[in-house]
Amino acid sequence: MPDRRPRRTDPGRRDRIVDACLDVVVAHGVAGTSHRRVAEAADVPLGSMTYHFAGMDELLREAFGRFARTVSDEFERRLGAAADADDARAAVVGLVSDVAGTRRDLVLTHELYTLAAREPAFRDLTTAWMARSRRALERHFDPATARMLDALIEGLAVHRTLDRPEGQGPYDAALLADAVARITRA
């Protein structure tokens, strides 16, 4: 009987692939994301890609789903900690400045929006993401105001991505605080 090599176990492999997929999307865009690039970035054999995911769409849905949940969790955490409307306004300013302000998050958000504009499965993901954001905002503001704040946040993400090279440079938090205050005035 031939010697059997012990089977290599790698319980974190699937998660590593998903995380690597997001890194590859940031570096190369969705159009430049391939099984080969993701496998290399995750340091896994190419065959692992088809073992864990039926195709690139499934991997991208999983990766963007994880990204959207992470951002939404932080959004809910910060707004949930706000004791009143003033704290909620400050939380919105902080979210735009801190969470939605990293180059990585801005690039991933735009790549997801582009997919959502064309693909219903990704549109469902962004619709759920926006609904979660609005529910968190509605803890402190009426539904119409929450919708306007959500649009401000999303619009600022677009501007921040396109206004500044590489997503770097100063950002006027006072102007943002003024915009949030104007929208949330009774």
Rank of each mutant, 00 (worst) to 15 (best):
P170Q: 02
L95G: 08
R37K: 14
P6A: 15
H35M: 12
G80D: 06
A91R: 03
R16F: 09
D163H: 11
P11Y: 06
C21N: 04
E119Y: 06
R123N: 15
E40W: 03
L59F: 00
A121H: 05
A68V: 09
A20N: 07
V25A: 04
P11G: 04
P165T: 13
S72T: 06
H35N: 15
A173N: 09
R14P: 00
V99S: 14
A177N: 10
R16T: 10
G12E: 08
R134K: 14
L137V: 14
V71T: 05
T145L: 12
R164W: 04
D150R: 06
R182K: 12
R132C: 11
R4S: 12
H35L: 05
G47H: 07
D142Y: 07
F75G: 05
E58C: 10
D87A: 15
F64T: 07
R61C: 05
A117Y: 12
A42G: 05
Q168D: 11
R89C: 06
R182G: 13
A81G: 04
R118C: 09
F67I: 02
G29V: 03
M56Q: 14
A100W: 15
A83S: 14
V18I: 13
G169K: 08
H110I: 13
A90R: 13
H110F: 13
R16V: 10
D23K: 08
A82E: 00
V158H: 07
A68M: 01
G101Y: 06
D23E: 12
H35T: 12
D3Y: 13
L176A: 11
E74W: 00
R139K: 12
L162Q: 07
R4N: 11
S72L: 15
A117G: 15
D19Y: 01
P143G: 12
A20T: 08
R164A: 09
L176D: 08
A39P: 02
D98E: 10
A20K: 08
I183Q: 03
R37G: 11
L137D: 09
D150T: 07
